[in-house]
Design a protein around this nucleic acid. Structure first.
Lengths: 351, 351
DNA sequence: CTGTTAGCGCATTCAG
DNA sequence: CTGAATGCGCTAACAG
């Protein structure tokens, strides 16, 4: 039925004008332009060494047949996909949306394309997501944190693709870590607050299982308090993710308790804004009556009537640095790299 | 050098234990398991008609060689990628993160995988993103809004993939529209506020170029005001995206003006929260002194000391319905469909 | 500067 | 239930 050669021959049920059923192919463009397929391929990929006339003819042909390249085939043939897998815990958290913006910024114009997966903070889901991203043969992977299931870790370690573990630099990375030391940030926060005269520390936080970095900040804070001869007078934690509503409720509970804190450190800004709202609702004046301190430096905290005192994490920079570093060098270096994107304490007006 | 057949023959520089350089392939698993490639392929894809013994042997072989399927090749061979392209204006806006969560929810466990692109509200960027997504041969596309460049529209119309245009149902879709009538939502908001006794309407909004839906709500509001024999007494708009900080500043400006509004309608909750913050900062009491009304029903508005009066848009539902609808039927129906996910007016405590 | 040839890794026919 | 052949659409590696 078919010629013995495996060169593609359009099925007999071809239309008539060079536009067979289905999507137009490279071959259709080539036929219309009167050149070979590889020439079209070169034009599409913007390679040099094509005469202006030929290029123009090909471009015109692409336009007339409405050609859209099939990257599946292209990536398979060149065994390189120009995809960068990005595995994040959640997108409901602005923090990760910021990271993603950074990744986008670094990748814009490079030809690389990010593919995003969301784990909902579940290691098993992360494993599934990593597995399915790897199946698309990405050039690099960006994953949040160091906590992976054993199979996920094996996949990332065994594969030749570059891997950035982001947000955190408090552990040894597979390839490169980009982020900040949350332990140190917690430590410095407490030192800052002690230097401002606070002595009775309360803590309001969220689920440490889901957010190990919150735990690191907490540990750092306690270490600093210990060195200063202090300790927490009280603390509250909710089981779920951080929300402003829970921050508000837990602040109310903490202030109603016996600890009588003079400052409340929150696991992040979302929770801390809830603390500020509690003050607004009850007439307490932040800083004068109670110090409130967050983490992240989100816009919402800075838009409050009183600028939230917090630590600015550089999420955009984390995403951008990770992506830049990965695409700068195709091969994984022999030694792991750590990129510290730092943080800044924002004195603010609430502590 | 090579056998005349085009059957793959591992390069001579093969290792020795059935684990050649590079990623293990289906053929490697087949060799180790002592079956044919197609049998491995069937096991991997979970097809029926495989004897338990064979399946077990294959599974074991997959484990020992550490096989990860190459979906690039799979999708090319089967000309179907199990990808769903999702094109959104921004991820910094929780609204779209919610939509994405809905898409994820609908796709979880179906084998489909979302691939996200971000346009930053720029039609030209949208065109680029659509083009590059289409190049991955997705099974379906979900795009925000109806505003596309002519080439982008042509690509979406011409392609056989299913297309959902989401957020908005105030225009004729290419295939299916999922969302709510923003015009009607604006209209109903104004009617609601009129019925609550407000007469002097102010408006604070953001860039209409970027956010056409905000414009539709505005138009609907003005229509309702007109019917009630009213009109805006004053309005302010910023050029950029909606932010809480701008909402606060514009509210201050509006209240300092000559219009003396008794209610301010905001383009969305982000802006409205800024209005509430302005009140907190100046001692004004929302509703008693000035009505404040938003749009979206974001968590932050409901966590305020006073629950923000607003309209709940069902973003999660929009994402889920769109994805469900698209994967329920592979072929594009002859007639466009419109799915109205509705909205609810939340009376709240600020208007 | 342009063309020819031979796959990329897998899944779809068909046969058994 | 399992296997052999063929090609998905494109690009790398040579030639010219």
């Amino acid at each position: 039925m078919r010629k013995g050669t495996r060169r593609k021959v359009r099925s007999p049920e071809v239309g008539d004008e060079g536009t067979p059923r289905g999507q137009p192919l490279l071959a259709d463009v080539a036929r219309v332009a009167g050149v070979s397929e590889i020439t079209v391929s070169r034009v599409v990929r913007g390679l040099e060494r094509i005469s202006p006339q030929t290029r123009a003819r090909v471009l015109a042909a692409i336009e007339t047949v409405g050609y859209v390249p099939n990257r599946l085939a292209g990536a398979l043939a060149s065994s390189g996909s120009m995809l960068v897998g990005v595995v994040l815990p959640s997108l409901s958290n602005i923090v990760f949306a910021d990271v993603l913006r950074g990744v986008h910024a670094a990748l814009a114009g490079t030809g690389y394309q990010p593919v995003v997966g969301v784990t909902e903070y579940a290691p098993n889901t992360e494993e599934r997501v990593v597995r399915s991203m790897m199946a698309w043969q990405p050039r690099a992977m960006i994953v949040a944190g160091f906590e992976h299931t054993a199979p996920a870790r094996r996949m990332l370690e065994a594969s030749p693709v570059r891997v950035a573990e982001i947000m955190d630099i408090d552990a040894a990375p597979i390839d490169v870590a980009v982020g900040l030391s949350h332990r140190k940030a917690g430590y410095d926060s407490a030192r800052h607050l002690v230097s401002r005269g606070y002595r009775r520390f309360g803590y309001v936080g969220h689920d440490w299982e889901r957010d190990r970095r919150a735990r690191l900040r907490y540990d750092g804070m306690r270490a600093a308090l210990g060195e200063a001869g202090l300790d927490l007078v009280d603390e509250r934690r909710v089981d779920g993710p951080s929300t402003t509503a829970d921050g508000r409720a837990m602040t109310a509970a903490l202030l109603a308790g016996d600890g009588r804190p003079d400052v409340v450190v929150f696991s992040n800004d979302d929770m801390a804004v809830g603390g500020v709202f509690h003050c607004f609702a009850t007439g307490l004046v932040p800083r004068r009556d109670i110090g409130l301190f967050g983490f992240n430096g989100l816009d919402i905290g800075q838009a409050l009537p009183l600028r939230l005192s917090t630590v600015r994490s550089n999420r955009f920079l984390i995403g951008r640095s990770a992506a830049e570093t990965l695409i700068a060098q195709a091969a994984r270096p022999s030694d792991p790299t750590i990129i510290d994107t730092g943080y800044e304490i924002e004195a603010g007006e609430t502590a």
